[in-house]
Lab assay of single mutants.
Amino acid sequence: MSHKQIYYSDKYDDEEFEYRHVMLPKDIAKLVPKTHLMSESEWRNLGVQQSQGWVHYMIHEPEPHILLFRRPLPKKPKK
């Protein structure tokens, strides 16, 4: 599979999560399941490479070739 064609967005966040999206080329996108969110082993098997802790959290129906990921931000110590 062509890992060079996978595009990784910059990371962005809110108060709770860090987010990123990953755009897959058409040949890989056709392998994305339409019935469920992928486990880490499933998206890694497609060639997506990112650190541990990312969760495929949403399917964007109009653009199924874009995978939406998030992971919890580290808890800030209370002052």
Rank of each mutant, 00 (worst) to 15 (best):
L31M: 10
P25T: 06
K76W: 10
Y8W: 02
R20Q: 12
Y12R: 14
E40G: 04
L24I: 11
L31K: 14
M23F: 15
K75N: 14
I59N: 11
S41V: 12
G53M: 04
E40T: 07
G53Y: 05
N45R: 13
L67E: 02
E40N: 00
E40K: 05
I6Y: 10
P74R: 13
D14E: 07
R44G: 00
E18G: 01
L37N: 03
G53R: 06
H36A: 06
Y12D: 08
M38Y: 04
E63V: 05
L73Q: 05
H21F: 10
M58E: 10
E42L: 05
A29S: 09
I28K: 13
F69P: 01
I6D: 15
V48S: 00
L24P: 00
K30Y: 09
E18R: 05
L37K: 07
P62Q: 15
I28Y: 09
Y8P: 06
K4M: 08
E40R: 06
P72Q: 09
K26C: 08
F69H: 00
V32H: 00
G53K: 07
V55D: 07
H21L: 07
E42R: 00
P25H: 06
R20T: 04
N45G: 13
Q50W: 03
W54L: 01
S2D: 15
A29L: 07
H3W: 11
I66L: 06
L31D: 09
K11E: 10
D13T: 15
K76F: 12
E63T: 10
P64S: 10
L24F: 04
K4D: 15
K4V: 08
K26E: 11
S9Y: 12
H3L: 13
K75Y: 10
G47D: 01
L24W: 01
K76P: 11
Q49N: 12
K79F: 12
F69W: 04
K78D: 13
K78P: 14
T35K: 13
V55N: 07
I59L: 13
Q52T: 14
H60K: 12
Y7K: 15
Y57K: 01
H56D: 02
P25W: 02
L68C: 09
K11N: 02
P64H: 07
R20G: 03
K79Q: 14
H56V: 00
P25K: 04
Q50C: 09
H56C: 06
K76L: 11
R70K: 09
P33M: 03
L31W: 08
P64I: 01
I6N: 06
T35H: 13
D13S: 15
E18C: 04
R20M: 13
M23S: 12
L24S: 04
Q50V: 10
H65Q: 10
R71E: 00
T35R: 10
V48H: 06
P64T: 07
F69I: 07
L73W: 06
P33W: 01
K26F: 04
D13P: 04
K34F: 01
S39E: 11
D13Y: 15
F69T: 03
S51F: 05
V32M: 03
Q49H: 12
E16Q: 14
W54H: 00
T35C: 10
Y19E: 05
G53P: 03
I66T: 07
H56R: 03
H3D: 11
L46S: 03
Q52P: 14
P74S: 11
Q5D: 13
P33Y: 00
M1H: 15
I6R: 08
L46Q: 01
Q49F: 03
H65K: 02
K78A: 12
I66A: 02
Y7M: 14
S39F: 08
E61F: 08
E61H: 08
P74Q: 13
H21T: 15
V55F: 03
I6G: 04
Q50F: 13
E40C: 06
P33A: 03
I28T: 09
H36G: 08
S41G: 11
M38K: 03
M23E: 15
L67S: 02
H65S: 11
L73Y: 07
H65R: 10
R70C: 01
K30V: 08
P77F: 14
D10W: 10
Y8N: 05
F69Y: 00
A29M: 08
Y8I: 00
V22Y: 01
P64A: 07
E15S: 15
E42N: 09
A29Y: 05
H36Y: 08
W54N: 06
Q5F: 13
H56Q: 06
L73F: 04
P62E: 15
Q49C: 10
M23I: 15
G47F: 03
P72G: 04
I28D: 06
H36W: 01
P77V: 11
E15H: 09
K76V: 11
M1Y: 15
L68K: 08
H60L: 08
S41F: 13
S41K: 13
N45C: 09
K76G: 11
R44W: 04
S9L: 11
T35I: 05
V48G: 01
P62R: 15
P72H: 06
S39Y: 01
E63Q: 10
D27T: 08
M1D: 15
Q49L: 06
R70W: 02
E63D: 14
M38R: 02
M58A: 14
W54G: 03
D10A: 14
I66G: 02
W54S: 03
L46W: 01
S51H: 07
V48N: 00
K26S: 10
K34I: 06
V48D: 05
K11G: 08
K75E: 12
D14L: 05
H21Y: 14
Y8F: 10
H65L: 04
S39K: 09
P33S: 08
Y57N: 01
P74V: 11
L68S: 07
E63F: 07
R44K: 10
L67K: 05
I28M: 14
D27M: 05
R20N: 05
L24N: 02
H36P: 00
Y12G: 14
P62G: 14
H3E: 14
Y57I: 02
D13Q: 14
V32Q: 00
K34L: 10
L24V: 11
F69N: 04
D13W: 12
W43K: 03
Y19F: 06
Y8H: 08
A29Q: 06
H36V: 01
K26G: 09
R20I: 06
I28A: 08
S39P: 06
H60S: 09
H65G: 09
L73S: 09
S2F: 12
H36R: 14
L37D: 00
Y12N: 03
Y57D: 00
L73I: 12
D10H: 10
Y8T: 05
G47V: 01
L67W: 04
K75D: 13
Y57C: 03
K79E: 14
T35V: 05
K30T: 09
H65F: 09
S51G: 14
Y7I: 15
M23W: 14
G53T: 11
